[in-house]
């Protein structure tokens, strides 16, 4: 809910959303993954809100929001323009009517279109499964099996560019090439 008297329901209330740290609304019980993102330092600035509503899973693995995302940038901009009316200090938000917000990481469609080599992915996956369990167990460390290929690529990309914060994942993703990310996505999607 948003506006005067907004309460936490399925999701937390969205007043003063812009600039607030993730997972910080009092009295709302966040998902484990959102709290993980929060302690990694996720802040709801305009870029991150935009990325989240475009594809929630690309920023936070599992949340309480059963929502696949909004593809159309104008629709997202309109939604954010509406939400910002309920934020007291939207200092980091463009004054003009937000239309298209450049999203970082800007993934080139050719990257998403890369056909991954699952055999290479299987070899590379050795590095992942020291922590992420291949049977999908997710205690303490999220599951990375059975994802949609595109979600997987976007998420690793966000780590690679440092857009999505996490010390270990940034270190791992930084030196993965586009082909390697595609290979991993192709391998893990079949698990």
């Amino acid at each position: 809910m948003v506006g005067e008297d907004a309460k936490n329901r399925t999701g937390p209330q969205l007043n003063d959303l812009f600039g607030r740290p993730a997972g910080s609304v009092e009295g709302y019980k966040y998902s484990k993954d959102m709290m993980r993102a929060a302690s990694s330092g996720l802040i709801w600035d305009v870029e991150h809100i935009d990325m989240f509503i475009e594809k929630p899973k690309s920023l936070v693995f599992k949340t309480k929001m059963a929502f696949r995302g909004i593809k159309d940038p104008t629709e997202r901009a309109n939604l954010m323009a509406y939400l910002r009316q309920f934020s007291a200090s939207p200092s980091d938000i463009p004054e003009a009517e937000p239309t298209l917000v450049a999203r970082d990481p800007d993934i080139d469609p050719s990257i998403l279109a890369l056909e991954g080599d699952p055999e290479y992915g299987e070899y590379l996956s050795g590095e992942c499964v020291t922590c992420h369990q291949i049977d999908g167990e997710d205690e303490g460390i999220p599951s990375i099996t059975g994802w949609h290929i595109e979600d997987f690529v976007i998420a690793l990309h966000a780590y690679k560019t440092g857009y999505r914060p996490h010390q270990v994942m940034e270190t791992i993703a930084k030196r993965l090439s586009e082909e390697e990310i595609a290979g991993l996505a192709a391998y893990f999607t079949s698990k």
Binding site: G41, C131, G140
Partner: peptide, 20 residues
Amino acid sequence: AQRKQNYEESVGWYEGIVAD
């Protein structure tokens, strides 16, 4: 919160590496 997350991560890693 970050420190607690680190610990939880280590528990997840332990389960991961022994399975590996």
